[in-house]
Design a protein around this nucleic acid. Structure first.
Lengths: 179, 179
DNA sequence: CCTTACATGTAACAAGTTACATGATTAG
DNA sequence: CTAATCATGTAACTTGTTACATGTAAGG
């Protein structure tokens, strides 16, 4: 349900094509809402049908035409209404934690390898996030509300990853004791 | 895909009915893998068809018969194999973070109210988790591996919530500056 | 030569949600 | 009288994933 509102919010920031939105979701929105290009194109189609978006075809030579979407007044109103409604918090579904419940069936070397891969991934993502923070949000007080809110979303990502890394350390300690 | 393995792991711990599994998922597995009773019954049916579980009907008077499921050798092997394969980390999809990207359309009073509700929910869950930790995991070194792994999953939940609460504080500060 | 970026999709399937259905017993 | 616990499900729908499809241009 939230995908449509994520799209409306992203398009409210600035009009875009499905392709551009896919990039935004992959990069700036990776720590907020995940969506593949298939989902995005499908949802854009629906939103357009329902009159929440306008679509303008921008012809190109030698490439498929770009389809530029913008939020309509109705779309903005829909988003506004959604924003006032309390949203459920996302359910937890983590395959790695599932593994921990398999007890003695666990393959410890494989688990350690997986943890190591995870750690590298998280550390890299943390660096990316911190670089963005330095570049765009180094003086938060001076920023307009719009950007401060985005900064808060990024902070969430950073704090989450830091907690994950601390947890990994705890895990490694426990596994070392076990041996 | 992981739901089936969560079920196999839970049933490996001890055989159970769909109803009992639903309770476990709601309580002990809430911070690991979420699933509703409909999903659980459906998946148990499939797993049984595929021969990964055996099912024994236990007659009861005046109530529907209980269907007790147990993992077969094949099921255990399937779980073992899955455990050695690296799993993707769960994608992020958080409606509250989506809201932060709506910029000037955000309804700040509604946001504050939502944060307050969230905070209460998290604090309560944290207390629950910490109570479980004290009761079952106060001397982690002395526990068998099986329980130590479950403790690690719980630690993940605790660290995650603590990070969430710290983030909420940051948010409140920012909103207060804004006014 | 191969991959990445650009730019759009369709089709089939798997997973997750919401609503509905039944029926006894116990606790407040 | 009402709600919760026990115990099972079906049906319809929405969301998310995976695989396939097309075609150019630029960079290493």
């Amino acid at each position: 349900m939230s995908l449509r509102y994520a799209l409306l919010a992203a398009l409210h920031e600035s009009p875009a094509t499905g392709y551009e939105l896919t990039q935004r979701f992959r990069h700036r929105l990776a720590h907020v809402w995940n969506a593949s290009h298939q989902q995005i194109y499908r949802e854009l189609g629906k939103l357009h049908e329902e009159g929440l978006l306008t679509m303008t075809e921008v012809p190109q030579t030698e490439k498929p035409d770009r389809k530029l979407y913008q939020v309509t007044a109705e779309g903005e109103q829909d988003l506004r209404t959604w924003l006032t409604r309390p949203q459920p918090r996302p359910p937890t579904r983590d395959p790695l934690l599932v593994k921990l419940f398999a007890g003695d069936l666990l393959d410890l070397p494989a688990l350690r390898a997986e943890m190591e891969r995870l750690r590298m991934g998280w550390e890299q993502q943390l660096q990316t996030f911190q670089a963005i923070e330095q570049e765009h949000f180094s003086a938060p007080e001076t920023l307009p509300q719009h950007y401060r809110m985005q900064h808060l979303a990024l902070r969430r990502g950073i704090l989450g990853i830091q907690a994950s890394l601390r947890w990994l350390e705890e895990m490694e300690e426990t596994l070392d004791q076990d041996n």
